[in-house]
Amino acid sequence: MKFLRWLVLALVAGIAAGASAALQSSELLKFSLVPALFAYMLIVLAGLSAGLLVQGVQEGLRLALSITLVGAITLFLALYLPNREVVAAAPELILRSVWWGALTIFVLTLIGIIVARIFSGE
């Protein structure tokens, strides 16, 4: 049951963080309704809400890594699907965005989780 909860949490928060990271990527930023700062805020909020649902720093860190993994896959798909033909010829075009997006997700999610754990009194 604990694993299932962790899996659902990682998937939901990861997809939310990945979708938000895609909004601030150089490919989609100009087409987004919201500025990059709002997308960063969404990632922190995903981390914050996930952080309120875990216990302990270690579990939080593991969750941040899982969210980053799911987020990076979501981000990759969000950038790959509309650019299938271009990316097939030159995958490096989106890999830079995916790499930076994954790093952003990890750092901001971790900040959110740490803030959540501080709020929880840990």
Partner: peptide, 16 residues
């Protein structure tokens, strides 16, 4: 978390 998921997916779908 659900709110963040819905908002981010709606915004992403619109941008895409």
């Amino acid at each position: 978390l659900v709110l963040v998921l819905v908002v981010s997916l709606v915004l992403l779908a619109w941008a895409e």
